[in-house]
């Protein structure tokens, strides 16, 4: 893997896009890397699509805005449509195939499809498709370690919601082992 991963995570508001992006950044930080996280903000967050930019690098990070991601995690169709063409050649597109009814048309990237929303529903945790997608991404790329992301999860999950830690970890593993 290259020394810098620029990840755009995109989906509907409420799918945990921001949270998953923060988790990536936190995991990168705990791994001793340079990291940044930048949300889309303002009216576009209200009801429509939300996205965030997470960068994990060995070098100091310039702009936290990602123009050409190395990894796109698309949690809905509009996100795939919007960002598909921006992914760098040789990059990765991770798609929640439960919600996206088409495959990527790019031939120069690695496509990963996983029915994350369906899997989350099956395990009784409908909102954890984001964790399943992350688990799968880690399995396929290895750019973050499962041990460290679990450490990060403890820090990113707010203290009031610590009881949700286990189910989040399970979802990560479910994706990892898919």
């Amino acid at each position: 893997m290259s020394s810098t991963q620029e990840i755009i995570m995109a989906g509907f508001g409420g799918q945990g896009v921001m949270f998953a992006g923060k988790l990536i950044a936190y995991t990168g930080m705990l791994s001793g890397k340079e990291v940044s996280w930048l949300p889309s903000y303002g009216p576009e967050m209200r009801g429509g699509t939300a996205n965030c930019h997470a960068i994990v690098s060995d070098e100091p990070i310039g702009s936290p805005i990602i123009i050409n991601p190395t990894i796109l995690i698309a949690m809905n169709r509009p996100s795939l449509d919007k960002f598909e063409d921006t992914v760098v050649s040789g990059g990765i597109i991770v798609v929640d195939s439960s919600l996206i009814d088409r495959q990527t048309t790019r031939k120069d990237i690695k496509s990963i499809e996983i029915p994350a929303t369906q899997m989350a529903a099956d395990m009784g945790a409908g909102k954890l498709a984001n964790m399943i997608l992350l688990g799968k991404l880690i399995k396929e790329t290895g750019f973050l370690s499962m041990d460290i992301i679990k450490e990060a999860l403890k820090k990113v999950v707010p203290s009031k919601k610590q009881h949700l830690l286990d189910i989040n970890m399970k979802a990560l593993e479910l994706g990892y082992n898919y």
Binding site: A25, V35, W37, L38, Y41, I61, S63, P64, I65
Partner: peptide, 10 residues
């Protein structure tokens, strides 16, 4: 600016 205000960094 908005970028500095909104972004997260260690």
């Amino acid at each position: 600016d908005g970028m500095l205000g909104q972004m997260m960094e260690p």
